[in-house]
Design a binder for these strands. Sequence first.
RNA 1: GGUCCCAUCGUCUAGUGGCCUAGGACGCCUGGUUUUCAUCCAGGAAAUCACGGGUUCGACUCCCGUUGGGACCGCCA
Length: 497
Amino acid sequence: MARNAAQKAWFVMSEVVRVRIAPSPTGKLHIGTARTALFNYLFAKKHEGKFIVRMEDTDRERSTDDFERDILDGLLWLGMPWDEGPEVGGPAEPYRQRDRAGIYQAFIDQLLESKAAYRCFCTPEELEQERAEQQAKKLPPRYSGKCRKLTADEAAAHEQAGKPFTVRFATPAGKVEFEDLIRGHVEFDGELFGDFVIVRSDGTPLFLLANVIDDHLMEITHVLRGEDHLSNAGKQILLAKALNLFSPEFGHFPLILNTDRSKMSKRKNPVAISDDYKAKGFLPEALVNFIALLGWSSGTDRELYSLGELIDEFQIERVGRSPSIFDLEKLTWMNGYYIRHLAIGDLANRAEVFITNPIIKQAALKSPEFHLQALSLVQERLKTLAEVEEQIEFFYQDPVYETALLIAKKSNRERTQKALTVALEAVGQLKELTLEQIELALRGAAKNAELADGELLWTVRVALSGRAASPGTFELIEVFGRDEALKRLKSGLKKLG
RNA sequence: GGUCCCAUCGUCUAGUGGCCUAGGACGCCUGGUUUUCAUCCAGGAAAUCACGGGUUCGACUCCCGUUGGGACCGCCA
């Protein structure tokens, strides 16, 4: 636990920016947490500083290893590896609060000794009742400060009797003020905080306290987090002062909202990066780009940025103060944009996990060239990777469709039969299967048979794909090759009777 | 109930006193390219800048108030 001299010296000398993201593993990586992480990451990289992850798992009841795994994997997936934190270590090890349990006691003792904090013997039931009464009287729910008035003897007697106690901060009266990087001058009246609990009856510190101590020990220079922590900053500044510690700079981002303008929540929105976005076929590039725009803008008309470009352009002063609603439609558009701009091999790699049909999987493995060609034909119509399988299915399996679909809008059965017949002939006679030759042959065939181009091309396309909407006729023939194309045209003709 | 925060097209936003009869993006509509869909291109509708008062020669921009919305007030973080 003790840092060696070299590390200590390094800390003292460092003037670099050190920021942290402090998630509690009580749920999967949340959109809001991801955005806070991103802004911290961008801020750190922009200033050539360190991005640190600290797991705040003091809530043992709700914290799980699975959630921690999900959060860490999510950060990595989004492209934000941490310089210090779980699994990579660092000079301020350990980076999980459950492993730091021994660190906090000295600080708690210091607070108790200096009378900046006191033991509270009130039971949860008493407190709950007190709160209920205050609520009923429409008074602000705050601790009465009852145990603060206990004499040393009374407190000792309670302790002697083995009564469980929490530790409360004796919040000093007076103003707390600070300059928030995003909100500007902020001030609170200390009295309004009440004497909040900083240590549980089991002796473990609460977030408010552990946070301050760890930020100090980890030499955090800037605390950048959601606006829901704004009043906590006031409490933590007070706490730091009582402990004789410097407070970091603070910056509080506006919240991300549900459509009904309440704080974005699991109930009303898909918020889990892993389950709701990664698993649904969203690209990390799109998510990062989109999330960055929730609250931040460059001041120009530009909206498309890679992570690297974001690092170059990001300025904390350009983060806005008003909350934003998460717009899934725009994210989806952006995702499609990023998919369209993927190199085809890259698309294939990323789409792989979304292809579950064993027939397609095997065939793709067997002839990767064909697979790549099929993918490139559907690439521009994908909004998410999850749509890949449905889109390329007909390349691998005989198309299933209603006979009527073969007949183009302004055509009829006879003309369609004719179209298929002459198309069959034209494709059969094709010397080389280039887009140009295919088009020439098909259009020529239509002309000779006195058919509109559209009549013929539509039915050929449907015979090949089985779909009302699909990639173009010429492209399909080129990718399928003569034999497969012929086979499908024949089966189409047969359907027509 | 208290404290704090926020307020420009449906949504994300630009705008820091005159360049704004408010710009961009998503979505929506129309047209073009085209065998279909998608892409792409061109165009359009869409914000009395929440409201009311000031300050100023001049306010989306500054000040005050009102209204609306939100966050926080836990032995959660």
